[in-house]
Design a protein around this nucleic acid. Structure first.
Lengths: 172, 172
DNA sequence: TTGACGCCCATAATGTCCCATGATAGCCCA
DNA sequence: TGGGCTATCATGGGACATTATGGGCGTCAA
């Protein structure tokens, strides 16, 4: 599908995962998936939650068809029987879970998933646009601070460069 | 972005956020979004209010599709699974909120947003063209004074330089 | 049996919707 | 040109829906 509008978003609804939420796990190990995320997954036509441990950091990537499509295209980019393709398929598909979402909008993370992210009593769900991540709250705070610092530095550098290139009245 | 509008602006309507308004939060924490801003958001085809804490100052940036597009294009510049993309998404989308606008044109700022801007009892909405900002009134006054001073100085410098380069009023 | 997991209901807190009010600004018409 | 009439706006508050969370029971499999 194209970039142009599709299903008219309902009130305040978005076609991307945004914001972040801190949710607690109950005694049975269940966590509520934020309502806004659930709404997006439903609109995306995905029943359940596609989830896997991120390759290089202690966090879980999750989402619906949009995420699945991205992974698919990544793997499709490698030649059919290449070593790389096998490895990517194995590490992405092989460790993925399709979690069931119960009537109240909760999921139960597997032990492997929780262990990878270091999640125990609570989890932070963070929207990244086409997908979202699930972090151990403390680690999320640290990561957010670091990421924000990087973006800030980038913005300043960008701003400085613009001024250098267009000294006078560079109007948009 | 193009200058040409899409939907013909009605009488006195603008295709940019301009001017500033001081609005109070009610007991439930709601604030009215200035009517002229709402009209622009509606014309922009965005239902709700996209809002996030500014990177380097105690202010909130807000807007509709135009603002969203700006962020999206920044992130789209990084390759799908790159570290940079993940961090930019985390910081930009992760701290964003899509606030719902109620039937009376009000929004409820989240605690995180209010904390970042230092907003408690009132807020100043300031038009910045394709987006607008939400300030704590006192801070806005101070910032405005400072900015005005800077612009004044810059204008004088610019005027002097213009005279040197293009002696006679070369206007667009 | 003993869990692990599915499905159901209960509840407190929050968020959303709807209607009411006073103030303002714009408009029409004499 | 002035004077009121009305649509719009900012604001207040109550009623109701949704959310996150807790816990009860069966079922199916070790």
């Amino acid at each position: 599908m194209g970039l142009a509008g599709k299903t008219p978003p309902a009130t305040g609804e978005m076609d991307r995962f945004v914001s972040h939420y801190l949710l607690r796990l109950d005694a049975k190990g269940r966590v509520s998936v934020p309502a806004s995320f659930r709404a997006l997954l439903a609109r995306d036509g995905f029943d359940g939650l596609y989830c896997y441990p991120a390759l290089d950091r202690p966090v879980l990537d999750a989402g619906g068809n949009a995420l699945l499509a991205e992974i698919q295209s990544l793997i499709a980019g490698f030649s059919p029987f290449s070593e790389a393709r096998e490895q990517f398929s194995l590490s992405l598909y092989g460790t993925s879970e399709t979690l069931k979402i119960d009537g109240e909008g909760r999921v139960t993370l597997t032990e492997a998933l929780k262990a990878h992210a270091g999640i125990a009593a609570a989890a932070t769900f963070v929207g990244l646009g086409h997908k979202f991540q699930i972090w151990e709250p403390g680690r999320f705070r640290a990561e957010l601070a670091e990421a924000t610092e990087k973006v800030r530095a980038f913005k300043q550098e960008l701003g400085a460069r613009m001024v250098a290139v267009k000294p006078l009245g560079a109007r948009e």
